[in-house]
Amino acid sequence: MIKQERMQVIKQQEIAKQIFELTVQGGLADEMSEPGQFVHIRVADSFEPLLRRPISVASIDLEASQFTMIYRAEGRGTGLLSEKKPGDTLDVLGPLGHGFPVEEAQKKAYLIGGGIGVPPLYELAKQLNARGIETVHILGFESKQAVFYEEKFRALGDTHIATVDGSHGTQGFVTHILNELPSDFDTYYSCGPTAMLEAVQWAYPQKKGFLSYEQRMGCGIGACFACVCRTTKSETDYIKVCSDGPVFPAGVVIS
């Protein structure tokens, strides 16, 4: 169930260049189950900035009623968010949207992420491993300074890193790594820039895949019709990234 709650900030730290890891606590965390869902955060009590900011969930700790988000501080809203300290409270709406279906994977899954699309794959990897699924992680970043959670992913399975400038791991994009890896998996899950999602879909037309999309949002719950995309399912209707997604099966979104 969707809740709105003033949650307690437990921890916040910069874990890579401009990348922040933020943990909050409260009853809202108990509503979380699916990896790939997101929360909508009001970063100020005033109307500056006015709208909430959609932030993806990187891990859920049901026992502690906590969850952790990872985001890039680049604009006014996420800049203010990065200033929150333990003891502060945060107006959180969530969990929102439909996440990654973990039950679709049979034996082995590829988890393919780019930049700030990497965080939701961490909770996904944890849940897939808990179900006995072997996970392989292919993660792309701008440069060495932008890389985060490499060791955490390694602890869960085979992990490959690409950086655009070649300062860490393979030089180039995740697709360069995918070209070298065997296609011995049954399901792939991906989150990242739209161009990357397109490339991943093209690479595995025969495989079962689930992709998490990004779009500029207003309300986050499906009422404002800001975050629409064309879909192969209908010529007369859009799909909404916030409430129909953000995760869609491969081949559904026309980007």
Partner: peptide, 19 residues
């Protein structure tokens, strides 16, 4: 179907929309 995206933009204490 409405307009293409982006359809909203935040402004000072407000927002623009063209749904």
């Amino acid at each position: 179907l409405g307009n293409p995206t982006p359809r909203v933009a935040e402004t000072a204490s407000g927002m623009l929309n063209a749904i």
